[in-house]
Design a protein around this nucleic acid. Structure first.
Lengths: 345, 345
DNA sequence: GGGGTCTGGTAAAGGCGTTTACTAAAGGCC
DNA sequence: GGCCTTTAGTAAACGCCTTTACCAGACCCC
């Protein structure tokens, strides 16, 4: 029993394939009798339009894609989850690619876009672009939305967050608790969000009368494993920092791992603030104070804009900057006596 | 500048479309001169076969799907991530659907399968089937692989884990530490993995000379939010349990939240063992002893079997049972004095 | 020189909906 | 009776690639 085709349904209903197609797609009004015969034929044969033929005819894949550095990272999984919800509600399926942060794999996704596998792409990167991504975006006008991390020079709508403000509020929470020697373990060089968060850190320190020495600024990938290594440097500083602003929750986890290894207690010996606000940080030992990004909103807005663009109602090529907010938990305390407000060494 | 078609490439190269198609797909050998002309034409026009037409011709979507209850849950995200890797390496794209554990949404994925949107489906459920899923699986022979949770009566390969053994080793770790009043907060009724893990719990208790009273067995969804509520009951027991075996890490998190709320310290007042072995449990306060599932393997094996089946090399419709292992961390301690080995109340 | 085998291709038939343009018939109006 | 409108459809083109079946010519062997 092969799959039934439109013609078979039409024959059974005693009408032409055109009529069935148009009726199924709601582009024709038919008298109840005819409609009923078609309905029955469809039901009897368990007919379902062939997706391939339909896509070829319509010139649409009825799917959108999202590239993330790593789908098993909860931050990206949350964004993808929300994008999936919007996509399905809008009649699209969501294809997910994990780029492992490799530009070649990201470029491969653009090939899929060019080939029509998907109608549009949500692009989430985590590294500096060498120009190739911006070029691909330019070649696919109206089909790409950039999320969370900038792709410099690309012409596309962006949905980003207020990184500088976030870096500032994270650090200000620490200066308010009395800290002055606040190190920053941030994202990699050349990455916009990392630069902005670091700028916020620097500004908050300056407001507390501290000029951040370069040695207090560590850079690493936004992931836990490399952050564990980077955190080494933290404990080599002399005098030691009393607090750390981590550029992501994953980095904060890395700092926590290293601190535990070293017998450094948080927040007793070291206060810590993260960035992202993953649901899980509430359950860490100790619960992590973190700058919460509106993660769901990122996914939702990105998918909504992409769907709008594909459907031809082009929104302006602009940049949305979503607000972040500080969620205070238990990983920040006052510095120990003798470690209170003071100048940088 | 429209997208170039195969014919345009062919014209430019001075051959027939057939030749170009066959050469591109490697099903013909051509003298270097001809090959070079085609290569040039493809490059000059930046030709890329239209994915829709190709899929229609081949009768393949070149994509597989995975339905998970919730993609933002790290357990499923990890499985999906691994499946994505295998899929891409095998020439397929991965379409992800979040079912929110709603059977209607799961059924919708089977519609996608029937319509040819995808060539095969990895099915991960989290609830009891009312027969509809098994029916859909039966109607799509050789196109479905069932992962992690059984769908009763379905005829398809399964990749599951040794739930009973896992429940046993979790509970045995607690009896070995001296506990006897060990409660179980497990998954919902009618769900195979929940029943098996509970059976392991019961067996380990029996081996320690304890017949588990029904009152010690709590059932909840495999998620944190409902587990928080379910954990209420735990603290209403009298005498209170000295340890809990949670049917999933998410449930363990729920127990931890409730314990914290109640001022019950873990493992001081209550020992706790989870199930799943998510990467994150290592960083909780306290790090959670948990039965680790081979999560990557689940995703990898499922995707590999599905791809094999689609490519026609049908593996037997069998059930793989992957081993689990206990990873001991800091959430288990000996019961307080006076709470040691003793009979159930 | 008859028959066989390579080499290097090609023509044409799918695959299956969607959509545009068009028509036949019925009904309404004056 | 003539003209217009509405209703209820339909024929045919289209989207673009893949694949099967087949062919012409060159070359070889005996």
């Amino acid at each position: 029993m092969r799959k039934p085709t439109l013609s078979e349904v039409a024959r059974r209903a005693g009408v032409s394939p055109t009529t069935v197609s148009r009726w199924l797609n709601g582009s024709i009004h038919l008298p109840v009798g005819t409609a009923e015969r078609i309905r029955e034929a469809v039901r009897d044969l368990d007919y379902r339009p062939n997706a391939q033929a339909r896509r070829l005819s319509r010139g649409r894949a009825e799917a959108i894609g999202v590239v993330v550095p790593d789908i098993s990272n909860p931050f990206f999984a949350l964004i993808a989850g929300e994008a999936e919800r919007v996509a399905v509600d809008s009649g699209y399926d969501l294809v997910i690619w994990s780029s492992r942060n490799l530009i070649e794999r990201e470029l491969a996704c653009f090939d899929r876009l060019a080939a029509g596998f998907i109608d549009g792409l949500i692009l989430i990167t985590n590294h500096e672009d060498d120009g190739r991504l911006a070029d691909r975006v330019a070649r696919n006008p109206g089909r790409v939305v950039i999320v969370d991390e900038d792709v410099r020079g690309a012409v596309a709508p962006r949905v980003l967050v207020e990184n500088e403000a976030g870096g500032h509020m994270a650090t200000a929470a620490l200066t308010a608790a009395g800290h002055r020697r606040i190190a920053h373990v941030g994202g990699p060089r050349g990455v916009m969000s990392a630069a902005e968060r670091a700028a916020g850190w620097r500004r908050a320190l300056a407001e507390a009368g501290v000029v951040a020495p370069a040695a207090w600024h560590f850079r690493t990938e936004y992931e836990m494993a490399p952050a564990i290594v980077a955190a080494e440097g933290l404990f080599a500083l002399d005098p030691a920092p009393t607090a750390v602003f981590a550029g992501s929750d994953a980095i904060a986890l890395g700092v926590m791992v290293k601190a535990r290894e070293r017998g450094v207690s948080i927040p007793g010996d070291l206060s810590l603030v993260g960035f992202d606000g993953l649901p899980i940080v509430d359950l860490l030992g100790p619960p992590l104070t973190s700058v919460a990004q509106p993660i769901d909103e990122l996914g939702r807005l990105a998918a909504e804009r992409l769907v709008l663009m594909i459907d031809g109602e082009a929104p302006p090529v602009d940049t949305l900057r979503l607000p972040v907010r500080l969620v205070e938990r238990a990983s920040v305390a006052a510095p120990k006596r003798g470690e209170g407000p003071q100048r940088a060494a």
